[in-house]
């Protein structure tokens, strides 16, 4: 257990620690300094890429929650319908397809579409968003389906027998049941989008440099301490978000 945790954490902690080193060579100690955080803030291209990534991730996660929520609900609650097997297989496919296959096939779709309809004329943030929403959809659908499968239908049936129309029953009973799964799914889709290099590289164009695409090209050339500083910022944000989530979800006495 502790061996495994040490293996997982050692590189992360060293990266964070050396972000505060003044030395120009990353992972060499040159005295305490925050100069790399200043350099990070002054790096316009990185900041631009990070903003784009956040926008794409938020959009993709939101789309994924709407579509994946519906898909998970359909798989868990609507029983048999024509094409259910195909629907289930398609909803699960993005989870098990290798990234290079997903990325390549989506790019070919966008190229074919552009040839047929003139859209998308230029690949970039929009095409990345569509691709990430599709992958996120699959994750949300799985989580929502599992959540609903673990809950009985009694409450929905009770609502129906008390006279609620299906839409009302869905909004007042099923939707609140799904809420934790939707929140978890949004977070998963958001994180996946922020972390994806391969699919984004395939479906993006010159106007769509997301943070991972930018970082990948930078790391290939060579490391800089700025990247360590970025890691500290991300860990800090993740820690704050986590604290906030724990505080919001803290057990409350009724």
């Amino acid at each position: 257990m502790y061996l495994g945790l040490a293996f997982l954490w050692a590189p992360v902690l060293l990266l964070a620690g050396y972000a505060f080193s003044a030395d120009r060579i990353p992972f060499q100690w040159g005295g305490f300094s925050t100069r790399w955080f200043a350099a990070l803030a002054a790096n316009d291209r990185l900041m631009e890429a990070a903003l784009l990534s956040l926008r794409v991730a938020a959009g993709a996660a939101t789309l994924a929650v709407i579509l994946g929520g519906l898909a998970g609900f359909a798989l868990a609650r609507t029983g048999a319908f024509r094409g259910r097997a195909v629907f289930g297989a398609l909803a699960g496919a993005p989870l098990v397809l290798p990234e290079v296959v997903t990325g390549l096939s989506l790019l070919l779709l966008f190229v074919a579409l552009a040839g047929l309809t003139g859209w998308p004329a230029e690949r970039g943030a929009t095409t990345v968003l569509l691709a990430h929403a599709t992958i996120g959809l699959a994750y949300v659908a799985v989580v929502v389906q599992a959540r609903l499968a673990g809950q009985g239908r009694e409450m929905e049936e009770a609502a129906a027998s008390l006279g609620a129309r299906p839409l009302v029953a869905f909004c007042t009973v099923t939707l609140p049941l799904m809420a934790p799964a939707l929140a978890a799914g949004w977070l998963m889709a958001f994180t996946l989008s922020l972390d994806d290099v391969v699919v984004a590289s395939f479906v993006s164009g010159p106007a769509g440099t997301t943070l991972p695409i930018y970082l990948f090209s930078r790391i290939k050339v060579g490391l800089t301490p700025e990247i360590n500083a970025l890691g500290v910022v991300i860990l800090g944000v993740a820690g704050v978000a986590l604290g906030l989530a724990a505080w919001l979800l803290r057990p409350r006495r009724a």
């Binding site: 997982l8 060293l14 992972f27 922020l194 790391i219 860990l235 993740a238 986590l242």
Partner: peptide, 28 residues
């Protein structure tokens, strides 16, 4: 579980770059 998952939030590329920093000839 959180301790297992949290290193992930730093991002995949940053974790790989940490390993480059550890493993290279002039590395840690």
């Amino acid at each position: 579980l959180l301790l297992v998952l949290l290193p992930f939030w730093i991002g995949f590329l940053l974790r790989i770059s940490a390993w480059i920093g550890l493993l290279r000839d002039e590395g840690w």
